[in-house]
Amino acid sequence: MTNRPSAALCATLLLGACAATATEPPLAQRIANAAPATTVTARGETAPVGTPNADAADDPAIWRNAANPAQSLIVGTDKKAGLYVYGLDGKTRDFLDAGRVNNVDLRDGVTIEGRNGILVVASDRNDVAHAKLALFRLDPATAKLSALGKVDAGAGEAYGICLYRAPEATYAFVVLKDGTVNQIALDTSGAAPSGKIVRTMKLGTQSEGCAVDDRTGILYVAEEDVGLWRFDARPTGSIAPTKIAAADGKNLVMDAEGVAIAPMGEKDGYVLVSSQGDNAYVAYRLSDDSYAGRFRVVDGAIGGSEETDGIDLMLGDFGPGYPGGLFVAQDGHNATAAQNFKLVAWDDIVQALGIDR
């Protein structure tokens, strides 16, 4: 989330306190100007993060337990304090004090200290001048995180992070706050992790959210005030970006934030991006980058989500509560409690948008 005051906050402050955003239309106008959005409701939510009265919760990552889907886990960041692990019931299973970790991603089946495991990587911004990646192992039996170490990620402030499982290696893409994207080859096979920057890409302004489609080797990055881009994720590929969608205030309302992928078949599916400026989410087809629809998570038995930063999405069996898959969105305004994450069934989104499942 950017540091702009929210519409709700501005309503409670003196006019002068929000003068910095005078050129930005109020939320009601942004919603009115945007393309129509359908609605869904959350089926679950996590416990609030531990940092109250602050922009703290930021980004989730999903691990699906194929043997027992109901025991799947969600890792989420409190960017002021560390990493949480939640069950699908929303209860906190673990917390690890990792300081200022902003975004998080994970991959299963990675060789960690000589055996396969679940690798969790967070963008570490404890030193804003020198980006690092903080690496962890997630134990699926205990839902506990254990720190593996840190890897240098280049000069600048670490912001976004996403992982790519290629045939030859596991790569991390760290998105620095200025729009620089460093691709880092990770080695977690030994006693301590290591990493090497294999190439660098660049967007023009502040960027954060990203996701990689492991099937096709395509990286998607959100440049907050500009739009959604894709890159070739292969280390030998072109470093030139291709714009998928502009943050034009219609389909995508700046800030463009979290990014997630719904893979279908060999190369089809959707890429979703958080349209933070009007509390919505936008879907684009992976096959041709075309617009597929937009939706909001609104109040129901569980509250909706607003001003969302990070999102994650995984298709597959998550038990009867989340048919089709699980979509997780950070909620920037969780009633009177600290921020948390909302859980939505993928089938509910598919039905609302009228898209292919």
Score class of each variant (00 low, 15 high):
Ser6Gln: 08
Ala11Gly: 14
Leu13Val: 05
Gly16Pro: 00
Ala17Asp: 14
Thr23Met: 06
Thr23Asp: 13
Glu24Ser: 13
Pro26Glu: 13
Ile31Val: 15
Ala32Val: 11
Ala32Lys: 14
Thr41Gln: 14
Glu45Ser: 10
Thr46Glu: 00
Thr51Val: 11
Thr51Ala: 09
Asp58Ala: 10
Ile62Val: 15
Trp63Arg: 06
Asn68Asp: 15
Val75Thr: 02
Gly76Cys: 08
Gly76Gln: 01
Thr77Ile: 05
Lys79Val: 12
Lys80Gln: 15
Tyr84Ala: 14
Thr92Lys: 11
Thr92Pro: 00
Arg100Lys: 15
Arg100Pro: 00
Arg100Asn: 14
Asn102Asp: 12
Val104Met: 01
Asp105His: 02
Ile112Gly: 01
Ile118Trp: 01
Asp124Gln: 10
Arg125Leu: 12
Arg125Trp: 06
Asn126Arg: 14
Ala131Cys: 11
Leu133Gln: 02
Leu135Lys: 01
Ala143Asp: 12
Leu145Glu: 00
Leu148Ala: 04
Ala155Gln: 14
Arg165Cys: 01
Thr170Gln: 03
Ala172Val: 08
Val174Tyr: 00
Val175Gln: 01
Asp178His: 05
Val181Pro: 00
Asn182Ile: 13
Ile184His: 00
Ala185Tyr: 01
Thr188Phe: 02
Ala191Glu: 12
Ala192Met: 07
Ala192Lys: 15
Pro193Cys: 09
Ser194Cys: 11
Val198Gln: 07
Lys202Met: 11
Leu203Pro: 00
Leu203Ile: 08
Gly209Ile: 06
Thr216His: 09
Ala222Pro: 05
Ala222Gly: 09
Glu223Ile: 03
Glu223Tyr: 10
Gly227Phe: 09
Arg230Met: 13
Phe231Leu: 09
Thr236Lys: 09
Ser238Met: 05
Ile239Arg: 07
Lys243Ala: 14
Ala247Tyr: 07
Lys250Trp: 06
Leu252Val: 08
Val253Arg: 02
Gly258Tyr: 01
Ala260Trp: 04
Met264Ile: 12
Glu266Ser: 15
Glu266Arg: 15
Lys267Phe: 09
Ser275Ile: 04
Gln276Phe: 03
Asn279Gly: 06
Tyr281Asn: 02
Tyr284Pro: 01
Tyr284Trp: 02
Arg296Ser: 10
Val297Glu: 07
Gly303Phe: 03
Glu306Ile: 02
Asp309Pro: 12
Ile311Pro: 04
Asp312Trp: 02
Gly319Cys: 09
Gly325Thr: 04
Val328Phe: 07
Gln330Tyr: 05
Asp331Val: 10
Ala335Val: 08
Thr336Tyr: 11
Gln339Ile: 08
Asn340Tyr: 10
Gly354Gln: 08
